[in-house]
Every structure is written in C-alpha cells, then in structure tokens.
Nucleic acid binder design. Sequence first.
DNA 1: TTAATCTATCACTTGCCAGTTATATAACTA
DNA 2: TAGTTATATAACTGGCAAGTGATAGATTAA
Lengths: 117, 117
Amino acid sequence: MSTAWTALADPTRRTIVERLAARDHTAGELGAGLRISQPAVSKHLRVLREAELVTVEPLGQRRIYRLRPEALDEIDDWAREVRDFWRQRLDALDTEIARGRRDTHPAQPTERTDDEP
Amino acid sequence: MSTAWTALADPTRRTIVERLAARDHTAGELGAGLRISQPAVSKHLRVLREAELVTVEPLGQRRIYRLRPEALDEIDDWAREVRDFWRQRLDALDTEIARGRRDTHPAQPTERTDDEP
DNA sequence: TTAATCTATCACTTGCCAGTTATATAACTA
DNA sequence: TAGTTATATAACTGGCAAGTGATAGATTAA
C-alpha cells in the first residue's frame, strides 16, 4: 500500500490524476495517449487506488475511475505545515533582530555541542 | 537532476525538509537521529540540492543547509490546479443538472467511440 | 606538522518499481 | 453458442535509487 507521495512521484500517474480532475474516465480512456502498454496503465491505476487517490466503479465491462481530491490533502497539508514552520522561523529571527542581537544565523552550530539536532 | 516530486517522495528527505523549515542545520546535525550512514545522508542532501529545495553555505569545514521554500510551489501549485479543475468539473455538472439533463456521469464512454481521451 | 573532524564521492550491493508479454476473467455482441 | 472487448493479474526483466564501507579533501586543533 502506497502513500499519496509515492503515488504522485511518478509523472505518468500525475498525468492520470490531472485528467481525472477534469472528468471521470474509463481505464481504457486513460490508457489512450499514454504510450505504455495496457497492463502498465492497469498497474498505475492500482497504485492510485491503493493510495486512495481514485475510486473505481464498474460499468458493464468497463471501470470508471474517479478522482478523490481529499487525498491531495496529505500533500498540501504537509507543504503548508513546512511553510508555517518557515514563517515562524523568520518571525523569531525578526524578533531577535528587533531585540538588537547580532546572532544572525539560527543554524548556530553552538561551538562545541556534538551534533545533536 | 531530480524534481521536487521525486525528492520529496522519500520520507527521510521529507524529515530533513521539516527540520530545515524550523532552522538551518549543518549536514552533521541533519544526520544525527536519522539511523542511516553519513554517506547516505550526504546523498539525500545532494538530491535535495539538485531539486533546489535547499541551498548550502560552507562555514569552515561544515556545510550549512537552508530550506528554499519557493521550491515547494511546484508541489502545491500542481495540487491547487488539480483541485481547480475538479471544481470546474463540479460546477459544469451542476449547470447541466440545472438545465434538466439527466446526463449524470461526465465519463460518458459515448456508446461506440473508440477510446479517445 | 600531525592528528582529528566534517563532508562528499567512489565502488559496490540490493531491493523495488515501471515496463514488458502472456494469460485469466468478465461482460458485451453476433 | 462462439468471438470480441475491457480490464486485471502473473511472471519476468532492466534500471534506478538507497543503502553500505572505504577513501579523499578540506578545515580545525594540538
């Protein structure tokens, strides 16, 4: 079972997700235009299913794939969190500067402390 | 050269980015607590550099790593775009429904059209 | 200078992943 | 019914990516 990150790391799967954002597609429709074999498409769809980025509904012999955009939350929640941390960091730095310290780099390998994060 | 997507697909590298969001770190600090060898850390940092997610500044024998949060744009621009498409799709569907059509599934494998996207 | 420290690179191994062909299963069509 | 179509799975291959230990290069400490 894969995560949204690993599922979306693959450009082919991102293409599939982009198409599904516009409308639902059958597996065959998704395969058309993707210069890879039908089984390869099927495997990409499996990965997207397991990452819960898409759902499937059988319609006769076809399978209708539909995007589940909530699954993208994992991605941009993370990105937002990282940015928030970054902003806090900047704010803290500004505060220190305002206080008149000249302690510019937060990195601060603190003289002789041995490598602890 | 790797993209932000492939760089962030790896959980170890996401951890590194999270730490760098809070403050700058030396390579050694980042390695501490990451139960992998020093060369492994160095390679992760190289990937992050090549994806331009981080910058480095030498300070004596150490290397100070700093996050470049702009590189995250690639990620959430994509996510936002996908969501926007999805929303347009929903809006279009609502419109059709408002018009009284009963043409529910946009997938529409249109009877006998052969697989074109 | 010599020794120790920090980081990167080299050479190599291993495991996973995307691709393939062949085949199975199910649902339509004639 | 038999034949075709749509999709998934099985079995395999090749390449790449992440791990390792060994080593190089540069800086700091003695």
